[in-house]
Each structure stands twice: as C-alpha cells, then as structure tokens.
C-alpha cells in the first residue's frame, strides 16, 4: 500500500510518499528525510525527546502517525535557526547551560518555542517548570532550562516591544 501526503516541512512544501502506513512522524523525519535532530528517547510519548511543532503546537512525533498529517505544517529543530543566527531560545540554552549530554535538547528547545508561542508563562518560573515537564532530562539540566526559557521570553518580549519580528 502506498500513501502520499503533502506537508509543509520547515517552511517548505513537500510531497511525501509513505512506503508503510505504520510510519510515525518521528521515523519519517529520522529514517527517511535525513532530519535526525529530532531524537527518539522512548518512542512512547513518555520523554519528549521527539518534540516537534505540528501546526505551530508542540507534539510528540513518536505518537503521530505520518499518514494523518496530510496538509499539516511541521517544524523541527533543523528549521529553527536563521542560517548561522541562532533562535533566541537556542542561544539561551547555551547561555544558561540548559543541557549536558544534549540528547533531549532539540526536544526541549522545540517544546520551549511552543511554550513561548502559547504565551502563558508570564515570567513565572513555576509555570515554566510545569509546562516543560513533558521533556525529561536525565542529566538534570532543569534549572538551566527554566532560566533559558525565562530569558528567551524576556528577550522576545523586548524585541516585540521594539517592533522587531
């Protein structure tokens, strides 16, 4: 059985032929589209390492059946930086040492970007902790992650005040 879907992937329209209906978005990205930045930590929606944005919202790519994504927009870690210019969230993760081994980091960053788009943090570290709890970090970089998200929120707010996109 062959299935075709049309999706927007990191801003680019893509027609994708699926060789198997069982393919998840995660395995599509990693094994078929050479986008390996998104990680497989548990494959069961229990760790968040595979977090990507679908239609602007963060989801677990491992529990998303690729075939059902017809018409969807998908953003992955590879599409976040503007060329050599890091996204503010990426830079904040470096500045606050918000990772150690780095394996959960693409998922953390996509989750943080999704969180900031939801605009419900309001500078409250407790809200960041709760809202970032879908992303496990076994190294225990949580303190830096919280600081990074708050920092990126402040920066984004300042930029939007200045009218910067």
């Amino acid at each position: 059985m062959s299935l075709a879907i049309q999706i927007t992937l990191n801003g680019e329209s893509r027609a994708i032929e699926l060789d198997d209906p069982r393919i998840t978005l995660l395995d599509l990205l990693r094994e078929r589209l050479e986008l390996t930045g998104t990680k497989k930590g548990c494959d069961r929606g229990q760790c968040g390492a595979c977090t990507v944005l679908v239609d602007g919202r963060r989801v677990n790519a491992c529990l998303t059946l690729a075939a059902s994504l017809e018409g969807a927009s998908v953003e992955t870690i590879e599409g976040v930086a503007d060329g050599p210019e890091l996204h503010p969230v990426q830079q904040a993760f470096i500045d606050h040492d918000g990772f150690q081994c780095g394996f959960c980091t693409p998922g953390q960053i996509m989750s943080a970007i999704g969180l900031l788009r939801e605009a419900r943090v309001h500078g409250d570290p407790e809200r960041v902790r709760e809202q970032m709890s879908g992303n496990l970090c076994r190294c225990g970089a949580y303190a830096g992650i919280v600081e990074a998200v708050l920092d990126a929120e402040r920066l984004t707010a300042r930029e939007s005040e200045r009218g910067v996109a």
């Binding site: 986008l35 390996t36 930045g37 998104t38 992955t76 870690i77 590879e78 976040v80 930086a81 890091l86 990426q90 830079q91 993760f93 470096i94 500045d95 040492d97 990772f99 780095g102 980091t105 693409p106 960053i109």
Partner: peptide, 12 residues
C-alpha cells in the same frame, strides 16, 4: 560556555 553548544542546540 560549552564548545559543543551550537551543535547540540541546532540538532547538528
């Protein structure tokens, strides 16, 4: 800061 930081935050 981590010298492998850029590689890790970009998925590279």
């Amino acid at each position: 800061k981590r010298r492998d930081g850029v590689a890790k935050v970009t998925g590279a």
